[in-house]
């Protein structure tokens, strides 16, 4: 189980949270101006990196506030947590945090 540091409540068990997928996906400013391809990409395509990933969580069992986290999808280590509206820490999506190794040999 993940231990997630809510920016408001501090470290809590994963079971208190719900997942919200990729962070920083803005609703298109003018949806009517989009082509079918662009609208399809907005609806159905999200980044799916093996490595650092900026994602949304909501602390449903606590302050009930949404926030963002940067988490490594291979090691599950959370590299940063930040509030909605704050800019993403300068960790490039898809890369590995320094010193992070994936355990488990060939996998």
């Amino acid at each position: 189980m993940l231990l997630i540091s809510c920016p408001n409540c501090g470290p809590r068990d994963e079971t208190e949270f719900h997942y919200g997928g990729q962070a920083h996906v803005a609703y298109p400013e003018d949806p009517n101006a989009l082509t079918d391809e662009e609208w399809g990409r907005y609806l159905f395509y999200r980044e799916n990196p093996k490595g650092l990933f900026a994602e949304r969580w909501v602390h449903s069992g606590g302050c009930r506030k949404w926030f963002n986290a940067v988490r490594d999808t291979a090691t599950y280590r959370i590299a940063a947590v930040y509030r909605m509206g704050e800019t993403q820490p300068s960790l490039a999506t898809g890369e590995r945090a320094a010193g992070d190794k994936i355990s488990g040999g060939v996998k």
Binding site: L2, E14, T73
Partner: peptide, 12 residues
């Protein structure tokens, strides 16, 4: 619930 490539999940 979360995206993951770790071939493991949580006990809950």
């Amino acid at each position: 619930s979360y995206n993951g490539y770790g071939q493991r999940g949580a006990f809950h």
